[in-house]
Write a protein that binds this DNA or RNA. Structure first.
Length: 730
DNA sequence: CGAAAGGCTCTTTTT
DNA sequence: GAGCCTTTCG
């Protein structure tokens, strides 16, 4: 098979440019994944480069898997040990192998978001601050930002410019100490420590530099500074670095992805070859045009000349519904209509949304209609309590210093080691200068020796010893048994099934444990220790889309972020409203607003045939009902590209003429002489409901109906102006 | 010690 | 509406 056949001239140019740096700017649907795959295949098959000497970085594990499959088809034989995966997975592998040079113990565990928050809380408390006053999440984000520029606690603290930053510096320092004591790395550490390793150990760097002749990076627009640094380190003198990206699809700046990497690339590699992929093979002309109108409003971008030879296709559907329930219902019934009419298969349809919370109404509608769907994240499997409990046991077995996991399981299932006992244990461990697990071992050893008893009562000594003896048994077994045998032993010994069954949703939760066991089975052929470690790494570094199964014929529900890199014949984007898309947190920041717009652009450009942009008039948010207005992004789509419909009549359909209680209305004071003139946007005060904002005014026969959005818990009320006694506020 | 109940605060997006 | 924390009681 000729690897260059079937490629257009620009794609061919990108594939053949194998010497020196290459920057590929690729519009949506322009075949960039294809280019990467063909480029790797070209290197191996035509240029005779060993797969061993190629690294390809993808954004998700799923993308890596697909790339591998594609390559196998292209090359027609096994790949050998090509390095392909996410930055995080690749770095974890490097650190396990060579991390010692920078002080990383190869048995490290990786802390996910939840573990990180819990450790941050502890750090905040330990330096004498209140986690309620200093939100762990906010501090975590600041620390993550620091790590994204490989700034150590000491370096960070040198350059603080505010009290908040000073606090961040202190928390960062303690947090990092605790991580080290726990022999744990967080996601950012995986990247940062690898860069530090390469800085600290030129021999290690040289080893990797001489191995990797060619490096390729997908989704380059979403890399951060450390990731870029890593690419530069590995690229070494050779500069055989090929990066592929699209600035218009940069949607991870909140994770400190830095678009400037693209500019820096051209500066750091002045000899870089630039390739533009502008022909779109995915979408209809009208979809591409719609998307272009949305994105072209952004100021901070370089215009692109995207084009397609595809059919014009259908107009973009803009639909307004009354509530989010109706919105979900519309989506599901429209999908049903398309499927029944033979216009699409169920699996062709995707529903995309800005926030995870929006999936709820959709799921309910899918279930009510009995239509199959797959939810990409949901309450993510690996974040479920029962799943994390078992993982925590396995983590402590691999690495007893993992304090976050130890604290999680020490009293789960309950064995009488409550808060009180735990802090006793913690302070004793500290006084002895040992880790908590080591303290437990000391207690167990000393329990029959009257002399060296730690200051605990005999009951506590008994339960603590019992716990640590059990864990020691697990650890011993982990050296000789395969992962599944170990898994079964742990679950049985701690009585986890009985524990779950006695609680709520026991059956469902037990099923999740069994599901985790089937994941573990994939690792049972590995050597005992290796299987455990690979399993733990796998379950921590999974991404949500990794679980997406294309072979199942069901509609897909994803966030817009997760949708990056996917494509579907039919795309619904729901909640296209001010405050949702764009998200309200972005409303006052032009830079963030541009990112929201890119997010919308990413969504639209996922579609091959049909796009629906749906918004609701009312939506429950954080418990109370709010009135929503159509997203500003919809205004930027010319009318001639749009087929719009409202599924509810603003003038007639609504509830009762007035929500104002009748009895009360009669007793209410007579219309006052100076009824204020109100218009949408005015702030008002109501004696009973408090402060609110006028959402809408509608003239009636001899009165005005005003819709007012009140504060939390009250929601939107429909009032008669003459009776409501509204006070206009400035 | 632990279960239950009530009160609080927030919620973007995720490797 | 949910998850987390605190309080209270057995």
């Amino acid at each position: 098979m000729d690897i260059l056949a079937e490629l257009n001239p620009a794609q061919k140019e990108a594939v053949e440019a194998i010497e020196g740096p290459v920057l590929i700017l690729a519009g949506p649907g322009s075949g960039k994944t294809r280019v990467i795959a063909h480029r790797v295949a070209y290197l191996i098959k035509v240029c005779g480069v060993s797969p061993h000497r190629i690294m390809a970085v993808t954004f998700t594990n799923k993308a890596a898997r697909e790339m591998e499959e594609r390559l196998q088809r292209l090359i027609g034989r096994a790949l050998g040990d090509l390095t392909i995966g996410t930055f995080h997975a690749i770095c974890a592998r490097i650190l396990r192998r060579d991390g010692r040079a920078t002080g990383v113990d190869p048995r490290f565990v990786i802390y996910d978001d939840e573990d990180q928050i819990s450790l941050l809380k502890r750090s905040i408390q330990e330096i004498g601050l209140d986690p309620k006053q200093y939100a762990p999440r906010a501090l975590g984000s600041a620390i993550s930002a620091a790590k994204s520029c490989t700034s150590t606690p000491t370096e960070y603290s040198k350059h603080t410019t505010s009290y908040f930053e000073e606090v961040v510096g202190r928390v960062y320092e303690r947090y990092q100490q605790l991580l080290e004591e726990s022999n744990a790395l967080d996601f950012d550490d995986l990247l940062m420590k690898t860069v530090q390793l390469f800085r600290a150990s030129p021999e290690t760097l040289a080893k990797y530099q001489s191995r990797y002749l060619h490096i390729m990076v997908d989704e380059f627009q979403d890399t951060n500074v450390v990731q870029y640094e890593l690419i530069k380190q590995l690229g070494g003198e050779r500069h055989n670095v090929c990066v592929v990206g699209d600035p218009d699809q940069s949607i991870y700046s909140w994770r400190f992805a830095d678009l400037r990497n693209i500019l820096s690339f051209e500066k750091d590699f002045p000899e870089a070859k630039l390739v533009l992929l502008e022909q779109n093979y995915r979408s209809t002309k009208l979809i591409l045009e719609t998307a272009s109108h949305v994105i072209s409003v952004n100021q901070l971008r370089k215009p692109k000349a995207l084009w397609t030879e595809n059919e014009p296709g259908e107009l973009t559907n803009i639909v307004e519904t009354y509530t989010e329930q109706e919105e979900a219902q519309f989506v599901v019934s429209e999908i049903e209509r398309l499927v029944e009419g033979g216009k699409a298969k169920l699996g062709d349809c995707a529903v995309m949304y800005r926030t995870n919370a929006q999936s709820r109404a959709l799921e309910e509608a899918f279930m009510r209609y009995g239509i199959a769907y797959k939810l990409v994240a949901g309450t993510r499997f690996y974040e479920r309590r029962e799943v994390k409990d078992i993982i925590a046991y396995l983590r402590v077995i691999q690495n007893p210093n993992d304090s976050v996991s130890l604290l999680r399981i020490i009293n789960v299932p309950g064995r009488g080691i409550g808060q009180q006992s735990q802090s006793q244990l913690a302070s004793w461990a500290k006084s002895q200068g040992v880790s908590q697990y080591e303290a437990l071992k000391l207690i167990a050893e000393a329990k029959d020796d009257e002399e060296s008893q730690p200051p605990f009562n005999s009951r506590l000594v008994r339960v603590l010893s019992g716990f640590v003896e059990m864990m020691e048994e697990f650890i011993a077994r982990s050296r000789e048994s395969n992962l599944v045998a170990l898994f079964d032993l742990v679950v049985k010994k701690i009585g986890y099934e009985e524990y779950l069954m006695s609680g709520e949703n026991g059956e469902e939760r037990w099923e999740n444990v069994l599901e985790l066991r089937t994941v573990a089975r994939d690792y049972r052929h590995l050597e005992p220790g290796e299987g455990l470690s690979a399993f733990l790494e796998g379950v921590t570094l999974v991404s949500d889309v990794d679980g997406l199964d294309e072979t199942v014929d069901a509609a897909t529900l994803v966030t817009l972020h997760q949708a990056k890199g996917l494509e579907f014949p039919v795309v619904f984007i729901v909640g296209v409203e001010e405050g949702i898309l764009p998200h309200y947190k972005s409303l006052d920041d032009p830079g963030q607003m541009e990112e929201e717009r890119r997010l919308c652009y990413v969504g639209i450009t996922r579609a091959k045939q049909r796009v629906y942009l749906v918004h609701a008039f009312r939506r429950s948010l954080m418990g109370s009902s709010m009135v929503s207005t159509a997203s500003r992004f919809l205004d930027d789509i010319p009318k001639n590209l749009v087929a719009s419909s409202g599924l509810w009549e603003r003038e007639e359909s609504q509830v009762a003429p007035s929500l104002y209680p009748r009895g009360k209305a009669r007793r209410a004071p007579a219309p006052s002489s100076d009824v204020p003139e109100l218009k949408a946007g005015d702030r008002v005060h109501h004696a009973q409901f408090g402060d609110g904002v006028v959402v809408n005014c509608r003239p009636l026969k001899d009165d005005t109906e005003v819709m007012v959005a009140f504060k939390r818990g009250v929601g939107v009320k429909r009032l008669l102006l003459s009776f409501a006694n509204l006070e206009k506020r400035k």
